[in-house]
Design a binder for these strands. Sequence first.
DNA 1: TAATTTCAAGAAAACGATTTCTCAAGGCCG
DNA 2: CGGCCTTGAGAAATCGTTTTCTTGAAATTA
Lengths: 340, 340
Amino acid sequence: MDNEEGAKLIDVAKLAECSPATVSRVLNGNPTVNRGVRERVIRAAAELRYVPNGSARALRSTRTRLVGAIIPTLDHAIYATMVDALQARLAEKGVSLILNTSTYDIDLEYEQAKLLVERGAEAVLLVGAEHRPQTLAMLEQKRVAYVFTYTSTATDAGAAVGFDNEKAGRAAARYLLDLGHTRLGMIAGITQDNDRAKGRRDGFLRELAKAGIDAASVPVAEGAYKIENGRSSMKMLMASSPRPTAVFCGSDILAAGAIKYCVEAGLAVPKDISIIGFDNLEIAVLTAPELTTLEVPARDMGRLAADYILASPLQRRHLRERELPISLVVRGSTGPGRAN
Amino acid sequence: MDNEEGAKLIDVAKLAECSPATVSRVLNGNPTVNRGVRERVIRAAAELRYVPNGSARALRSTRTRLVGAIIPTLDHAIYATMVDALQARLAEKGVSLILNTSTYDIDLEYEQAKLLVERGAEAVLLVGAEHRPQTLAMLEQKRVAYVFTYTSTATDAGAAVGFDNEKAGRAAARYLLDLGHTRLGMIAGITQDNDRAKGRRDGFLRELAKAGIDAASVPVAEGAYKIENGRSSMKMLMASSPRPTAVFCGSDILAAGAIKYCVEAGLAVPKDISIIGFDNLEIAVLTAPELTTLEVPARDMGRLAADYILASPLQRRHLRERELPISLVVRGSTGPGRAN
DNA sequence: TAATTTCAAGAAAACGATTTCTCAAGGCCG
DNA sequence: CGGCCTTGAGAAATCGTTTTCTTGAAATTA
């Protein structure tokens, strides 16, 4: 029968013998429609396999039920997991997610944000606190809500669901210091345009400074989150003298590579060298020894960011700036520092 | 000045002293506009920070530049990587991606597909070949192109970019048989509603049968893709008698767990037991020994699926059913079977 | 130079829904 | 029993673009 591509609302109206307005009301759950008519409409819509045109609907109602997310990459499990949770929560409420990966490029991020606004995203999730001013200005001007994740510092217009990277870095340092280590090193992620990697590094060094260890004496390598970079960075660190007895890695990926290097080089972990990671990815239990690490609440961030986005503007006031706890997960890759 | 929420096309027209039609032409790269006018329009649009309304545009032009993807989960790196590549390629051409995770539930997948159609997705990426008939019927009726990934069997209306899971399972079997193993086992992913997991398992068992090994004598465990499931499944398999000397795991995740169990139980890999994984995830080099595995071209699938989607209907004819090679990556987790 | 094309740009229709107005009918109250 | 309120449903305006149709002017051709 209906060989044509798609029935429109008016076709449903004709079949149900009522006006388009009434069809619209039924389809949108407006209760002011009599039972009989309502059922006729529903039957007609089903029969015609009617699918509403979202563009038309969005245009007229100014509600797109579309949300955007711009994350650095999906190749890092920590972001993939967050997005997974975000999407699941949004979907429960019939909200769709447009996903963009910026590859840690905040100029590209701006372009993507622009496109999201154009597409009618009602809210946008961003990672970290470091963005082009025009990105945020544009979102504000177009009245698009936005949430930062992986950071705990909100702005006037943007909420934050995350944690304090600087504090996390300090916690790593404190833990290693408390174990008795005095010669430390760090393998950080790329810190350029990345407030999270920077925060972790700075917090780590700051805490060491507080303990009387000069930052300049602490070897810090930097590398993208790849196992191989962890390996090569560790090699570099182990070549510095005096050799560190404990190393903080900005990600479990780097830490896994670092451990890999130690195994190859015949360095015993944690006897000769303690390694602490960051993220608590699933892989943290794959290294031998298993990885001591700081746990990042990726799934919680996704879920809570979704909650913020789904909340009414009124409720949102209570939800901005949500700092989640970072917890230390002690496994086998860290041990006491040798007594000096 | 422009305190209001958003300038519209007509405002740009007024400022540029021309008609809305002309503004539209300029913004869409229509060359039939004089240089002077064109520049005035561009300047006016910039001054007003004009952002087009995508809904209106889509409604009128019937082009949304929106594509949907429904994957089982982002928590498995193999899908995350594919989506990463897909999104990157689509973004190059200004196409946005709406992402859905179905949690391996093909009924939920149907609901999500419906929503994607409603949102105006011009194409949809699906994983595997097993779907509700009404899902595909709906896409066809609404003239939405679709691509299967992780499978190589296309349908009349749907293209396929992927590989042959059955063949991959056979390859794993062949490799282990050639190493001299005669007592084999398998740890598969959940096979219900999952043609890929099923294909791998069936191919594996079929090849063994061809070599005279009765499928009924081959212990097969099944579990979701979690390290812990690999561990516990391996424990089960090692309790069966006669104990297998080689195990094929449906995913590197499961294989990693399997190796973990062996280490705990004091079984030497590969001396006592050979383990081969599937996917070639980054983590395959983290186990000790490193994992022998079959490499899945996740990134290629994402990229090529995007190419298919971006192609014109005419070009698409040449691109449907694209079978990519699965290659064996030999590392340290497999070795010769004991001579009987 | 007149007739015919070509070109640039405006006017107005159209895309497919939602929403605002409007109105008729029925129920309720005094 | 008449006026007022409530309720259900239709008519028509509207959302912000793109596209089609027109038109006047300029360029080309005979």
